[in-house]
Simulated assay, not measured.
Amino acid sequence: MSTLNRLVLWNIDHTLVDVGRVTREAYAEAFERTTGRPLVRLAPTPGRTESEIIFETLAFNDIVTTDDHLPAFMVALTEAFAARRAGLREHGRVLAGAAEALAALAALPGTAQTVLTGSIRPNALLKVGELGLDRHLDLDSGGYENGVYSKAALLEIARTRTAEKHRARFTETVYIADSPRDVQAAHIAGAPIVAVATGSATESELRAAGADVVLATLADTDRVVRAVTELGAR
């Protein structure tokens, strides 16, 4: 049995990185390839899975969806992101304190870190890899959009995958994310959450949603580590 007992799950977009420009460009290209029409309005993205964003975007743009739309859009979105690998490095940015928080938590005994994201796996790997944040993340075991499960279900999948891979029994799981929808997912899955106001939600909105700890940013590394260890020990 592994000595790992603490699992930290990270949301990616607007928690660790901001790649909004590339995301919008990739969605516009994927939409046009899938529907033959230019994208007029992109659905809200915070806290959502890729499939939710795709279906709402199609609806917002008056596209009557069929069974073929989602898989075709997923393929087009994967290819559009891959074509913008250099753009992720040029226009994307690591959010303040993200790299330092990952490194500090990696140094805690018994701690594993992976991602819990609404992004499809190839795009998630590009976001963290191209911006140099993959060193401390077990990306084989994360929870990724797969067209079927909610973020709450993906949290349990990520926990189970990581535990099985490392032959570990996680007695502590903490999710770090930035939206009220992520707070809701954590509550459903029974995991405490550290919410950071680095996305579209304010600190007061995150508190109102029921986040266990709310931080303005990840810039105070000691505060991030303390929040994770204290929540995990509950």
Rank of each mutant, 00 (worst) to 15 (best):
L116N: 13
P46G: 10
R48T: 02
Q113S: 00
D182P: 12
V17D: 02
L39F: 06
E205Q: 13
D68K: 06
Y149A: 15
S119P: 04
R135I: 00
N123M: 09
V194I: 11
D220L: 03
L215D: 06
A124N: 05
A209T: 08
R85L: 10
L125T: 07
T65Y: 01
E230R: 00
G142Q: 10
L126I: 09
T202D: 07
A195L: 02
A163Q: 13
H14K: 08
A233C: 14
V17E: 01
L133C: 03
R37I: 01
D222T: 14
A201E: 09
R159C: 14
V194Q: 00
M1D: 08
G110K: 00
E100Y: 04
P38F: 02
R234A: 15
L9H: 01
L133T: 03
D13L: 03
V75C: 12
A197C: 07
E130M: 09
A103W: 00
A153Q: 15
F31Y: 07
E203T: 04
A83W: 11
A80L: 07
D67N: 06
R159I: 11
E25G: 06
R161G: 11
L126V: 05
V17M: 01
A227R: 03
L102P: 00
L16V: 01
V174R: 04
G129C: 07
V8M: 01
A83F: 05
Y27R: 03
F73L: 08
G97N: 05
G132P: 09
V94L: 04
L77Y: 14
R169N: 11
A83I: 06
E172T: 10
L139N: 08
R226Y: 02
L155Y: 07
T15Q: 05
A112Q: 08
V148I: 14
L42P: 07
H14Q: 05
G142N: 11
V40F: 03
G147N: 14
D62K: 03
D182G: 12
L16K: 01
F81D: 11
V17Q: 01
